[in-house]
Computed example of a mutant assay.
Amino acid sequence: MSTDNKIILVTGASRGAGKGIALALAEPGQVIYVTGRSQSEGDAPLPGTVFATAKEIEARGATAVPVVCDHSDDTQVKALFEQIDTEQGRLDILVNNALMVPDGLTLPGPFWEKPLGLQDILNVGFRSSYVSSYYAAPLLLRSERGLVVNTSSAGGGCYMHGPAYGAGKAGVDKMAHDMAVDFRPFNVAVVSLWMGLLKTERSMAVFEAQPELY
Rank of each mutant, 00 (worst) to 15 (best):
Y130S: 03
I7M: 06
L105D: 00
A26V: 11
M100K: 09
E212G: 10
P28I: 06
G18Q: 05
P102I: 09
A26R: 08
V95Y: 01
S192K: 10
L141G: 00
A205R: 13
R127F: 09
V188W: 09
E41Y: 06
V149L: 15
G42P: 10
D103K: 15
E212D: 13
V181K: 14
L46K: 10
T200E: 00
I121E: 01
D182F: 06
G42A: 11
L140V: 11
M204Y: 03
W112T: 13
L105Y: 01
K114L: 10
L198K: 11
F81H: 07
R142Y: 01
H177M: 12
C69L: 09
Y33R: 06
N97D: 10
R142N: 13
A64T: 05
A22P: 08
I21S: 02
V131L: 12
G12L: 07
M175E: 03
G12T: 08
T11Q: 07
G20L: 10
Y165F: 15
G146K: 09
K55Y: 00
T63A: 13
P163D: 05
P110D: 08
P138E: 05
A205C: 07
G155V: 10
L193T: 10
R15C: 03
Q30M: 15
R145Q: 13
M204L: 15
Y130D: 00
V50R: 05
A209K: 15
I32M: 08
P108K: 11
L197N: 01
I32G: 05
A205S: 14
M179Q: 14
L116W: 04
P45Y: 07
G20K: 11
D92P: 08
E41K: 14
P28E: 08
R127L: 13
P102S: 06
G61N: 05
P185W: 04
F183H: 10
A189D: 14
Y214D: 00
F186Q: 12
A209W: 05
L94I: 07
V77C: 07
Y130M: 14
L46D: 10
R15N: 06
P163M: 10
V65F: 01
A137E: 09
D173V: 03
G157T: 12
M1R: 15
L140K: 07
L9S: 08
T106Y: 06
R60S: 06
R90E: 00
G196P: 06
S153E: 00
H71T: 05
A98N: 02
K6H: 12
A170D: 03
I121L: 09
V181M: 12
G156S: 13
Q76W: 02
S14E: 07
V77E: 02
A136P: 11
M100L: 13
L198W: 04
P66M: 09
T86D: 06
P115N: 11
E212I: 02
M175A: 12
P45E: 08
K199W: 05
R145P: 00
S152Y: 03
P45M: 12
L122N: 13
L25N: 04
G16Y: 04
Y130E: 02
L139R: 09
Y135K: 09
S203D: 01
L139Y: 02
D178T: 15
D182N: 11
Q88D: 06
K19H: 11
L122C: 13
T106C: 03
A17N: 12
D120F: 02
G171W: 02
G157R: 14
P102R: 03
I7V: 15
N96M: 04
A154N: 09
P115C: 09
T151L: 15
